[in-house]
Write a protein that binds this DNA or RNA. Structure first.
Lengths: 332, 332
DNA sequence: CCGGTTTCAGAAACCGGTTACAGACTCTGC
DNA sequence: GCAGAGTCTGTAACCGGTTTCTGAAACCGG
């Protein structure tokens, strides 16, 4: 069994208090004593138990992060940004994916018992579960999810991005725009839709809504398959890249030319979007994660008591699906 | 402050031992007593402290996973597979990314103090750090990394995949093959190179090695830029998809036709590979993570003492970059 | 009604640390 | 040489649970 603080104390002929002090505040121990303790500690390969320490300090020194999935680049990047900052702040990171888990609320509640605070990405758990955790004293930061009363949040500025995107699309000459996605699926999509709708109205164009149930590639393909039955719009503004990519493939199969016959856009700037030449909107994913980590830390340490809502800027990334391809150079 | 076991015991007029038993083995407590304790517990919203429990049980009920990065799809998928199984086994998952961290060894050692065992992906930390942890009693499973003496590991069958890939490439008629990548960068690439080399030799073709320092898109682009100076081979077998994708873009710019002038392959089957029509080799990433979680659990629980080395099969995914494009259908 | 077995619950030790408090010892300055 | 201040270090309580051991009460058949 590994050496404990009592083993070290006994061997060094001191009390456990002195060993503890030697480990955490060497300056408070006489040099001579300290060296004796340190010698014994290193001989016994003593490393303080985190469990004992955490119990005594009544803190976990760990943060959690809940996400639906990591398959897409979106959440993976957020997690990375989060982990980097949490690491700097001396906190471990616990992860929990709710994909394919039917008891997400319970799983998250269990995780809340193992960390000092956590970040919830998207619509992974119920509002009730979130407020229950906060009520119990676990700080929570919401990301990519509508903010709840008194709870910190971090979001990308969907509205701004959507407005910029809409202007760009209309600048191609489009007057008949279709928004592909379900605004009811969450605030992100709702805001994107609202931003596009506002600009389209301002500039006197027409906006239709093409609802989907799932927002994945298959949805895009399926939509393209049913295209013949409706008149083709000038622009297909998709709520995310996956659908746009699915659409692109299916449109090409059907001989519809992009961007000549129809302009297509996505949202997220996944890696594949670059190769497909897909015009899209980029969110500062890593920065979102990092910001969430900072907000959470401020909350846990008590450095801040007022509620904070951070909104980070988005970037329009114009590519071939909204303008005639440049000499085949992959836009960065 | 939250209720503790002693609060519940006092209110219910029983000892803390009885409360503890009520929580973890209700059957061992008389119905009447149990109901009284449960009533008090729910009234006080008592939830046992994980810290106290963990200290008493001397286990963390958490596993760690160390990875270099999550940007690519590779590690993200492994992490997902790992998390899913660990969750089923009732263990939390701690993550640690070594990207942009100069003290990876120390960070991992610190994490090892907070979990019952961990998985190390790739060349994230030194062999010395790994063996040190194992010596201290922390079970470790290595993934995508050469196995160390007495330490469990999980790998994909690079050799098989490389052989299949090489046969496929030679079947296109190629006789002059270039392998793009640095076999010295790790066992994965070394095995891929070895597999290709073996088949090329068997079938009497020629194999060159095009070394690179970084294995990213920029490397591929840079390589293509320098192409004029060397004679173009029949096939460019890249050690990963990123380089292959970078190459594809740069080749197209230079007017080199793929697959007519040169055949190109990657490795990993990232999402973008599908859109680029890139022939590649798929590894069962989620399954690798899941397998690692199971091996680790067996080790932690002591269910297995002998060392295990799992090798999972790979799949060749032929696409347009090795054969004339089919009618523009995205291959799954 | 009685001895023996079973069931149930409490006392106390324990997990491995942190830290308030107090006592002992060492310096000062007079 | 001694009082007072300052420096170290030890004692012991505490963090919040689990679990062994033990004794009391309930139950059993004869």
């Amino acid at each position: 069994m590994r050496a404990t603080i009592r083993d070290v104390a006994r061997e060094a002929g001191v009390s456990i208090a002195t060993v503890s002090r030697t480990m955490r505040d060497p300056g408070s121990v006489r040099v001579e004593t300290r060296e004796r303790v340190e010698a014994v500690a290193s001989r016994l390969e003593y490393v303080p138990s985190q469990l004992g320490r955490q119990l005594a300090e009544r803190r976990h020194a760990a943060n959690g992060i809940v996400f639906p999935d990591l398959s897409g680049p979106y959440f993976a990047e957020v997690v990375l940004g989060y982990e980097a900052v949490a690491g700097e702040l001396g906190r471990s990171v616990l992860i929990l994916s709710t994909a394919g888990r039917d008891d997400a609320d319970r799983a998250v509640a269990a995780m809340a018992e193992r960390c000092d605070g956590l970040v919830v990405l998207g619509q992974t758990i119920s509002d009730a579960a979130v407020t229950a955790m906060v009520r119990r004293g676990t700080p929570v930061v919401l990301v990519a999810r509508p903010s709840l009363d008194g709870i910190d949040s971090v979001r990308a500025h969907n509205l701004d991005g959507a407005r910029a995107l809409a202007h760009h699309v209309l600048d191609t000459g489009a007057t008949d725009v279709a928004f592909v996605g379900d605004p009811g699926s969450g605030p992100d999509v709702a805001e994107r839709h609202a931003g596009v709708a506002a600009v389209v109205a301002e500039r006197g164009a027409r906006l239709r809504l093409w609802p989907v149930t799932e927002m994945d590639e298959a949805a895009g393909e399926h939509l393209a398959a049913g295209l013949g039955t409706r008149d083709l719009p000038d622009a297909l503004v998709c709520a995310n890249d996956e659908m746009a990519l699915g659409l692109l493939g299916a449109l090409a199969e059907r001989g519809v030319r992009v961007p000549d016959d129809v302009v297509v856009t996505g949202w997220d700037d996944v890696m594949a979007a670059r190769y497909a030449g897909l015009t899209t909107v980029r969110q500062p994913m890593r920065e979102i994660g990092a910001t969430a980590a900072r907000l959470l830390d401020e909350r846990i340490s008590g450095a801040r008591v007022e509620v904070a809502h951070e909104v980070l800027p988005t970037t329009l990334v114009p590519r071939d699906t909204t303008s005639s391809p440049t000499p085949r150079k992959v836009a960065r």
